[in-house]
């Protein structure tokens, strides 16, 4: 276990170095001078040179990259190009709790709706419930998240106009606050955000549950005369959940990809929107920071799912 963790941590460092290098070199090789772009019409040669020096942009690339890594190791994400006295973290810190909240509830929707629906489908295999569930899941899974988001918005607007209700179609409450005014705008984005993962888990849960129900020990349990409910919820369900743990990483990947669109469409002030804004502003330090944050999130998610795997299934040894 320890050996595995050490190995994975080394892998994590490798991935982070790789990702920072890709983001760094892209910014370095990009046509145009970022400082000059920020200065716009107020260009002045002396200030320009001073700023370049202040940001270390006059150094050769390997020295810039080295400095960047050293700062990163001290959890220093640098200073924004656009807001020249604001550290990057200062720009990101309001977005982090919002995105984390969205991701947390999105994951809850995926797991607590997706898995039961999938299990139900497997128990009632080939009934109309199963066909309906899986049909819906298939379509939701195939559709891109932003299409679902827009359709949801159209429906909200339509209901508002028909009933005179004023359900908000785009905004966000205070993070981690659940008064009705804070909660109300969050409900639809969270449901939409979890939709893709919901469909993924529902389909996977159905498949694994069907597989488990075909196993010999389930037949034995039935043959012993156990109550069907005991067979399903005690013998089968626990084993059907194992493979689901391993795909948590995939679910987290889906969440990260969804962030940009959900935050953009529903006007949510999270990391995804900040990072899009920084791409438009060519604010490289902020772009690099958001990319590193999101990628680290994905890698840690994968690591957690690997560790959970050994906990739920003691037969598996991590080597």
């Amino acid at each position: 276990m320890l050996q595995f963790l050490v190995k994975r941590l080394i892998g994590l460092i490798f991935v982070i170095v790789g990702i920072t290098f890709i983001t760094f070199i892209m910014g370095y090789l990009a046509p145009g001078d970022p400082i000059r772009a920020q200065m716009g019409d107020h260009f002045d040669y002396h200030t320009w040179q001073m700023l370049r020096h202040a940001y270390g942009l006059d150094l050769p690339w390997y020295q810039q990259y080295y400095n960047y890594l050293v700062h990163l190791a001290h959890f220093d994400l640098g200073i924004s190009f656009k807001y020249q006295n604001r550290p990057v973290w200062d720009i990101l810190k309001d977005g982090v709790p919002v995105s984390l909240e969205l991701a947390f509830w999105g994951l809850v929707v995926e797991l607590l709706l997706g898995i039961p629906v999938g299990i139900l489908s497997a128990i009632k295999a080939n009934s109309w419930i199963d066909t309906l569930n899986m049909g819906v899941a298939l379509i939701i899974y195939a559709l891109p998240p932003f299409v679902i988001a827009i359709l949801a918005q159209v429906v909200i607007v339509w209901i508002d106009s028909k009933t005179g209700a004023s359900w908000p179609s785009s905004s966000w409450g205070a993070p981690w606050q659940y008064d009705w005014t804070d909660l109300q705008p969050k409900i639809v984005p969270i449901l939409v955000y979890g939709a893709a993962g919901y469909a993924y888990f529902a389909r996977l849960a159905r498949t694994t549950m069907l597989e488990v129900l075909r196993q010999d020990y389930v037949r034995t349990a039935r043959a012993k005369g156990l109550h069907e409910r005991v067979v399903i919820y005690w013998h089968a369900l626990r084993n059907a959940l194992i493979p689901l743990v391993t795909v948590l990483g995939v679910a987290i990947g889906l969440l990260v990809a969804g962030t940009f669109f959900i935050e953009q469409i529903f006007n949510i002030p999270g990391i995804g929107r900040i990072s899009l804004q920084s791409v438009i502003d060519l604010d490289y330090p902020v772009i690099q920071a958001t990319v590193v944050l999101l990628a680290v999130g994905v890698v840690i998610g994968n690591l957690i799912s690997d560790i959970l795997y050994t906990i739920v299934d003691p037969r598996i040894r991590l080597e």
């Binding site: 990947g253 940009f260 990319v291 999101l294």
Partner: peptide
């Protein structure tokens, strides 16, 4: 580990 969309957004941006 690097979400593909993030890469594409970064490159095009």
């Amino acid at each position: 580990a690097f979400p593909g969309l993030l890469f594409a957004i970064m490159l095009t941006g």
